[in-house]
Design a protein around this nucleic acid. Structure first.
Lengths: 316, 316
DNA sequence: ACATGCTGTAAGCATCGCTTCACACGCCCC
DNA sequence: GGGGCGTGTGAAGCGATGCTTACAGCATGT
C-alpha cells in the first residue's frame, strides 16, 4: 500500500476531486485510478472516498492517509536530492524562488554570479509571492526561496489569512529589513527636503495601494497603520500592484504611495521618494524546508545571496 | 524507487550487513535482494553498497537513503494505525512496553483493567529496559510504553551512553517518582526504626548492586551518589540484577542493597526495607512516539495507567 | 426520454519480481 | 596449491501486478 504511484494518484484525486480528472492529469485512464484506489482501500481496510455521480470526496480516513502520503512524497524527493548531492558533490538541480521586487535587485545578480561559479548546475527561477514560495518549499517544488514577512504577517500566510505551511516546516535566515518609502509627486508639499516625514503626517493624504488580495502592501499597510494609531485614506478607485503604474498615478497627482525600497530602483523623473520615520518594513529572508538536505548548490547560493544582501544593507 | 518492499530489504541489509543474511531474514533468495538493491542503485543513480566477499557495507549515499527509508516506514505504519483507528474507532492492536519492576505493579493490573473494558483489542506486552522500549516506540514496534529516567540519565539512553532516539521523537507524560529504598538484613544496625537514614550513613557499607551494563541501578547509583559527595563501596563480587537474588545476598549478610520502591512488593521475611533521605529516584513516565496517531485504544490505556499511577502516588 | 459524465467491472496483454539454476570471485584450511 | 565455503551476480521461466480497452450501471440535467 502507498506505493509511489499510488501516492501520486491519491494526491491527484484529492486535488481534482474526481477519479476521471485525476486520471487526465496523470495521463491514465479513469479505470486505472479506480482500480488502484480500490486496492488502496482494500489494503487500508477503510473507505477512503465517498463516491458520487459528480466525483469523489475524501473521507476522514482518506485525509489521514493523504497527510502521510504527502510526507512520504517529501521524503522520496529529499532522498533523491540527497543521494544525488552526495554522489555528484556538485551539479544537479537548484530550484530557486523569489518575489517580484527581490527578483530584480537580488535574485538576478545572484543568479548571474551563481551561474558563473557553477555552470553545471541546472538553475531554475520561479517568481511568486512569499506564501506561494513557502508552499512550494514545503512540497519540494523549490529548494530555496527569497521571501519576506511583515510584523503581523508570516511569510507562509496567504492574502486571505490561511497558513500554507507550519512555522517549523520552513527554516529562515533573515537577510535585512526593507523599509517602505514615501513616493510623492515632485510638487508635493512633503517633497521638499527637510524634517523626516512621520506616518501621522499622512493622515490627510490619499494613498494609492495595491488591490486587496493581490499583494499585502495595500491591505496590510492599512492594518499596520491602524495599529500605529494612524488611519490612512486608501484610494478606492486607483489601485495597482504594478509599481510603474503606481508611479504614474502618483505623478498625475491622484495621490501618494508607499513603496518598498527594493522597488525604488527605477524611478520616473517626475516623482520623488522620501524616507519615513518608523516606517513599516518587510523582513526579507532566505527560506528552505526544515530538515531537508541542503545540497552544495543550495549552500553556495545561500552564500552568494548573503553577500549581495550584505551590500544592500550597507547601502541603506 | 523505495517501494515498501525495497524499504524492508534495505533495512534488513543494513541490519545484517549482507545480502544473503538479509534474504534469509526476509525469506527471500539472495538473488532477489541483489536484483532489487541493484535496481535501487540504478534508480538512485548512486552506489549504495560496498561489496566484499564477506558481505556489504553501506556507503554514505546508502546511509542517507536508509534514514529516509526508516522515516517512510514509520509513516506507513502510522498511516495504517491511524486509518484503522478512524474506521473501527475501537479495537485493533495495542503494543505496550514496560520495564520489569513496573510490569508487576502497574502493567499487570492495567492490562487486566484494559482487557475488561476493551475485549476486542489485541493487546500485546513487551517487557524491556527503558531504552529498549524507546527504540521500539521510535520504530513503531510499540505504541505506548512505561519507561523511567534518572536525573542524569534520559530514558532513551542505553547503558553504554548511546541515545537510541532523539529527545523530541519521544513524548512523555510523567507519572510519579519512584524512590530507592534501603534493603537491609533484619539484624543490621540501621534496621531498627528510628531516625531516617541518610545517604552519607552508608559510606561504610558494602552495597550489592546490579552487574554493570545490565541495569542502571548499579552503575548509575555510583554516579548519583558520587555527585552527592558520597562514595559508596559497591560489592565487586556479588552483583545481580535479580531482586530475589539481591534479597538473598542481603539476607545472608553479604552486604546491603538499594532497591526501587516498585520492586519492594515481594519481600522475604528476613530482610527489612527503610526509607532513605534524599534518595535517588526513578522518574516513571508514559511514553509514545511524537506525532504518531494516538488511537482510542492508546488513549484509553493512558487513562487506565494514570489512574493506577495516581493510586500508587497516593500510597507513597 | 435521452445524452452526459461519473464510477466500477471484465478481459487481454505487457511488465515486474520472484525462484531456480548456474557462475565468478575471494578466503581459509587442508 | 587445490578444494570447500562463503559471498554477490546473471539468465530463464513463471506467476502476479497493473495497465488498457470495452462495456455496464447510475444520477443528473436538458
Amino acid at each position: 500500500m502507498l506505493d509511489e504511484r499510488r501516492i501520486e494518484m491519491l494526491l491527484a484525486v484529492a486535488e481534482h476531486g474526481s477519479f476521471t480528472r485525476a486520471a487526465a492529469a496523470l495521463s491514465f485512464t479513469p479505470s486505472a485510478i479506480s482500480q488502484q484506489m480500490g486496492l488502496l482501500e482494500r489494503d487500508a481496510g477503510a473507505v477512503l472516498f465517498e463516491r458520487s455521480p459528480r466525483g469523489v470526496r475524501i473521507t476522514e480516513a482518506g485525509d489521514a492517509l493523504l497527510l502521510h502520503a504527502e510526507a512520504i512524497r517529501r521524503h522520496l524527493l529529499d532522498a533523491r536530492a540527497e543521494v544525488a548531492g552526495i554522489t555528484k558533490a556538485r551539479g544537479g538541480r537548484l530550484a530557486f524562488g523569489s518575489f517580484p521586487t527581490a527578483t530584480a535587485t537580488i535574485a538576478a545578480p545572484a543568479i548571474a554570479t551563481f551561474h558563473r561559479r557553477h555552470e553545471e548546475v541546472d538553475l531554475q527561477l520561479l517568481d511568486g509571492e512569499p506564501y506561494e514560495s513557502a508552499a512550494r518549499l514545503h512540497s519540494r517544488e523549490l529548494d530555496l526561496a527569497l521571501i519576506f514577512s511583515l510584523d503581523n504577517w508570516p511569510a507562509a500566510m496567504d492574502y486571505e489569512g490561511n497558513l500554507v505551511a507550519r512555522e517549523d516546516e520552513i527554516e529562515m535566515l533573515p537577510l535585512f529589513d526593507d523599509p517602505f518609502l514615501l513616493l510623492l509627486p515632485e510638487s508635493h508639499r512633503l517633497a521638499a527636503a527637510g524634517e523626516e516625514v512621520k506616518l501621522a503626517d499622512l493622515a490627510e493624504e490619499r494613498i494609492i495601494g495595491s488591490p486587496v488580495g493581490c499583494a499585502p502592501w495595500g491591505m496590510d499597510l492599512e492594518h499596520i497603520c491602524a495599529e500605529a494609531g494612524v488611519e490612512l485614506m486608501f484610494q478606492a478607485t486607483y489601485r495597482s500592484a504594478d509599481f510603474q503604474a503606481q508611479q504614474a498615478l502618483v505623478a498625475s497627482g491622484l495621490g501618494i504611495s508607499l513603496l518598498p525600497r527594493l522597488a525604488a530602483s527605477a524611478l520616473r523623473a517626475d516623482v520623488v521618494i522620501r524616507p519615513l520615520m518608523n516606517a513599516p518594513v518587510r523582513h526579507v529572508a532566505l527560506a528552505w524546508p526544515t530538515g531537508a538536505y541542503r545540497s552544495p548548490a543550495v549552500k553556495s547560493m545561500i552564500e552568494v545571496i548573503e553577500a549581495i544582501a550584505g551590500d544592500l544593507r550597507f547601502q541603506a
